[in-house]
Design a protein around this nucleic acid. Structure first.
Length: 790
DNA sequence: GGTAAGGCA
């Protein structure tokens, strides 16, 4: 049942151990092939019968051939069956109070503990409950079944939960996906004109805000005049702000994750809400009728664990957050007595202790480690220990789990366990939020994670991954993974005192990341990034750095004014730097090459480069070598792969393995490539134009976006940044590694044992004089670079 | 002369 939560920051207490969890996937099975956690397999088959084997394109869903009376009857039957389960969900049982609260307030904050059913039940209740229907147009004589009740958007940080939630909710409501319920994620929009509940990723909603679709944002007869007359005043300028008029209610789910998009969405929504409130009131006054053109926007912020005080203050709700208790089992938590110095070895020891003292039927063990290297080391220690197990003793199956692992290795997590065997899963925090692992009753927590850090410098930021202690919220989240199916145990490899000193929550992403893309989007919306209403302010420096980058790229001509070039850059799902490169390639005559290269840069590492077979990998790489550097070399790989694929080659996976190529990256890159080609076409650009063997223009295009990421060789053979004093080395994974070229451009700098430039191409440093940024601010730099030319 | 956590448009 719903109850009022404590105001102010809540510190997770031990009594709530099991409830600190991500709920995006708790009450359904993400894919039909996944092992069922709740519910019988028979039920699951019925659901997948309704929704088809997988996500389908819009047309096939809406105009699907299977939508006859028989399938309608089946959907109804399944919905009735699912209703039995729904009724018992805490969120359903607390529906009256929850809906009363939402209807009475502009913004509602809901802390829904794991298993309470918030993500699936809230949209349905809003669509069917009389409290909501009375509020949203039940009396409108023109309302049809679809227009009756509110139109709802529910955001998710990740694609998979957005898709899975839409599938589940459609089944519960007895409709097809793409009908009343649908989803929009990148590469897939399964919605129709009748869609009233739309699950979408935060990224999709951000794009909608910055790049509005004119057909869905315009009010019939145009916006009421007050908007235009207010243009130019900083505080009230909503001239460019997309008011999201297609939605009556926007639900931000999983808000505790505080992704970059969560924070920008909250800020923008608060602004939109105020604008719509004012416009709604004005429309009423002007017409003197009830027929208001702009409806107010309701916001619901939901999560399993968040700092309710922070969101209450931000949204100025004046109401306490609603707490909906979850359905989780208790987890006994313990600490070490003294600090330990080797968490890999200690983790392995603890695992063996659990294995030797707890019966197998009590469940599997999940170990949290910061990164792939620690995971592989820990698995190695465990494998050695497993050999020592006495004959006849229950066996161990040791499974590493991290994102860059090939899909086949990841899939083992969901395969059935052999008899008389206990599984030990050693994972990164991929198992904290993104993947739910069945059968786990024991958690061993190293207390560490890896986190991206940005070091801001006037000459450009440097990013690197750092090993850091987890936050308290994160530790509880890990703990909760032991209590999903039965009571569990969690062993923390640190002391109670160390735990007490941890930060209560993870630092929001906005405070440790490059803001150039977000700043461009804000300016496009007519918002000032310096005065934007942040939940947590990122500070002036990163915003100023973003402005500098964007001005250099020609996207902005003042902090409040976006250029036509900046507008065009926003039409592509790329960082501003990369969008600039793409646009340059159109005029330089090499979009075909640049689209391939950008697709690869944006999807991940092209090479599989493990420590043991580094030499073999380098040799394979030489087969694809392009003398200009890594960008064109990677393009050669992609093109050969696509060529093999189009000829129907059946041994693509083998080809990738033999050439130390990451197949996951290539398949993802092909999707991005298709999307970029389609978008280019929509812009009236011909992506087919190729420069053939005259690849000089490719590097010239790259330079148009990466001019800040350049370095020139000095007389001693080292490289120095053109935009700053930093010495950089070419990363040993680069094909230009031992080559001495006069000037290099690169995708990024990484700090490890030195400052390394990764993904490097060589260029003629005289080209820098063509770059506007160097013409103005950097002339002196370019001249001094010239002197050091060999 | 040496690495990489997780996401998203």
């Amino acid at each position: 049942m719903a109850e009022q939560a404590q105001a102010g920051p809540s510190t997770p207490s031990r009594s709530r151990v099991a409830n600190f969890d991500d709920s995006s996937s708790e009450d359904f099975t993400p894919t039909p092939s996944a092992k069922s956690v709740n519910g019988s397999p028979q039920k699951k088959r019925k659901i997948s019968h309704v929704n088809g084997a997988g996500p389908s394109k819009r047309t096939s869903v809406v105009k699907g051939t299977g939508d006859n009376d028989e399938s309608k009857r089946r959907r109804k039957e399944i919905a009735d069956e699912l209703f039995e389960v729904r009724q018992n969900l805490p969120f359903y049982q607390g529906r009256r109070q929850i809906l009363e609260e939402i209807m009475a307030n502009d913004t509602t904050i809901i802390i829904g503990e794991t298993g309470c059913g918030k993500s699936t039940q809230l949209p349905q209740l809003l669509r069917t409950h009389s409290l909501s229907l009375d509020h949203y147009g039940a009396n409108d004589p023109h309302a049809s079944r679809f227009t009756r009740g509110p139109s709802i958007a529910v955001t998710q940080p990740r694609r998979l939960p957005a898709i899975a939630l839409a599938n589940r909710v459609a089944a519960e409501m007895g409709c097809v996906v793409g009908g009343e319920v649908g989803y929009s994620v990148r590469f897939e929009d399964v919605t129709g004109r009748g869609t009233r509940v739309r699950y979408l990723t935060e990224g999709v909603l951000m794009r909608e805000l910055a790049n509005p679709d004119p057909t869905t944002t315009k009010i019939e007869g145009g916006l009421p005049t007050p908007v235009a007359s207010r243009q130019g005043t900083q505080e009230e300028d909503e001239g460019n702000l997309n008011l999201l008029l297609r939605y009556d209610i926007v639900v931000i789910d999983e808000a505790h994750e505080r992704t970059l998009n969560t924070d920008f969405l909250c800020g923008a929504l608060k602004r939109i809400q105020k604008a719509r409130k004012r416009l709604a009131a004005e429309a009423l006054l002007e017409n003197g009728e009830r027929k208001q053109q702009v409806k107010e926007l309701k916001i619901v912020v939901m999560s399993a664990t968040l700092d309710p005080g922070k969101f209450q203050r931000f949204f100025e709700t004046g109401r306490q957050a609603l707490l909906v208790k979850g359905r989780m089992f208790s987890v006994a938590t313990s600490y070490t007595v003294d600090p330990i110095d080797d968490f890999i070895e200690q983790a392995a020891r603890k695992v063996m202790q659990i294995h030797c003292t707890k019966p197998a039927k009590e469940g599997d063990v999940l170990v949290f480690m910061p990164g792939a290297e620690e995971i592989e080391n820990c698995c190695e220690v465990l494998r050695r220990a497993a050999i020592e197990l006495p004959e006849g003793h229950m066996q161990l199956q040791i499974l590493p789990l991290y994102s860059s692992l090939p899909p086949a290795a990841q899939a083992k997590i969901f395969a059935p366990t052999a008899k008389n065997t206990r599984r030990i899963i050693v994972a990164t925090n991929i198992a904290e939020t993104s993947m739910t692992i069945p059968g786990v009753s024991f958690v061993v927590d190293s207390g560490y994670k890896k986190e991206k850090e940005y070091i801001f410098r006037p000459s450009g930021a440097i990013e690197h991954l750092a090993k850091k202690p987890v936050s308290k919220a994160s530790a509880w989240q890990r703990t909760g993974r032991a209590g999903r199916e039965r009571a569990g145990e969690c062993y923390r490899l640190f002391t109670q005192k160390a735990f007490d000193m941890l930060d209560p929550f993870d630092a929001p992403e906005i405070q440790r990341c490059n803001l150039s893309s977000a700043v461009l989007q804000l300016v496009a919306m007519g918002l000032n990034p310096f005065t934007f209403d942040y939940i947590d302010h990122p500070g002036r420096d990163p915003i100023a750095a973003a402005f500098q980058t964007l001005a250099g790229l020609g996207a902005l001509d003042s902090p409040t004014s976006i250029t036509p070039l900046g507008r065009e850059m926003l039409r592509f799902p790329l960082d501003p730097e990369h969008a600039r490169i793409l646009i340059a390639s159109f005029s330089l005559g090499c979009p075909s090459e640049i689209i391939d290269i950008l697709s690869l840069i944006n999807t991940g590492p092209v090479w599989v480069d493990r420590v043991n077979d580094r030499d073999a990998a380098a040799a394979a790489r030489a087969r694809f070598l392009h003398r200009d550097g890594d960008h064109l070399t990677a393009m050669n790989v992609l093109r050969e792969y696509i060529d093999l694929k189009s000829r129907g080659d059946k041994s693509l996976a083998r080809w990738c393995r033999d050439n130390y190529v990451n197949q996951k990256t290539l398949t993802a890159a092909i999707k991005v490539r298709d999307q970029l080609r389609e978008l280019a076409e929509r812009e009236g650009r011909d992506w087919r134009v190729s420069c053939g063997n005259e690849t000089e223009v490719v590097v010239r295009s790259l330079l148009q976006g990466l001019f800040m990421n350049t370095a020139v060789i000095q007389s001693d053979g080292s490289y120095r940044q053109t935009a700053g004093p930093q010495l950089v080395k070419i990363h040993p994974s680069s094909v230009l590694m031992s080559k001495k070229v006069p000037a290099i451009l690169y995708d990024e700098l990484a700090i490890t044992t030195s400052v390394y430039a990764r993904n490097v191409s060589s260029f003629d440093q005289h080209w820098l004089s063509e770059i506007p940024w160097f013409k103005q601010a950097g002339l002196a730099v370019a001249q001094s670079a010239d002197k050091t030319r060999l």
